[in-house]
């Protein structure tokens, strides 16, 4: 008998052992795979290249509640008419639908930083892509663990 895990089993185990508090987030058995996220990003950007740096993601290492995971994204930029961050897109690789949020910034923001709260179905990497006014693209990712918790002491 194999111990290959399914996401359903995992959630049920959490609820039962009550070490858990994770309630049912999604009924869909199909979770987005890294390939699907890549294709979601691919669809938007084709084969354009991403640079690294400039993006600072502030997310918890461990989600306290998979249904409400805070995420702040801040992109380094002078935010002038000549040089600003046009957009930031957030993708969750392990969610049934990988798109989370797309922001459009303007120089009037003064600072390209925004906070929101997202649902995460499981432990995964969250990816952010920033589009600058000169057309260049930046990408960053952060791992967020969705755990059953309990036993802390």
């Amino acid at each position: 008998m194999s111990f290959m895990s399914s996401e359903q089993s995992r959630r049920d185990a959490f609820k039962l052992a009550g070490l858990a508090g994770l309630s049912l987030l999604v009924a869909s058995p199909a979770l987005a795979t890294p390939e699907e996220v890549a294709s979601a990003i691919g669809k938007a950007y084709g084969d354009r290249k991403f640079a690294s740096g400039k993006i600072k993601m502030d997310v918890p290492e461990i989600a306290e509640n998979g249904l409400v995971v805070p995420i702040n994204v801040e992109v380094e930029s002078p935010m002038t008419d000549a040089d600003y961050v046009k957009a930031v897109h957030v993708y969750a690789e392990g969610n049934p639908l990988p798109n989370v949020i797309s922001y459009k910034f303007t120089p009037a923001c003064g600072k390209a930083s925004a906070s929101a709260r997202m649902r995460l179905a499981q432990t995964q990497d969250v990816v952010c892509v920033a589009e600058m006014s000169d057309g260049s693209l930046y990408k960053a990712k952060a791992t967020i663990k969705v755990t059953i918790g309990g036993c802390g002491g």
Binding site: S9, A13, I148
Partner: peptide, 27 residues
């Protein structure tokens, strides 16, 4: 609980203690 679920619980708790990065440990 099924055997599979018991394993899920043990794995999850073990990761909370033995994740190599302490920022990912749960205590």
């Amino acid at each position: 609980m099924t055997g599979r679920q018991l394993k899920e619980v043990l794995e999850d708790v073990a990761d909370n203690i033995f994740h190599p990065d302490p920022y990912f440990q749960g205590g």
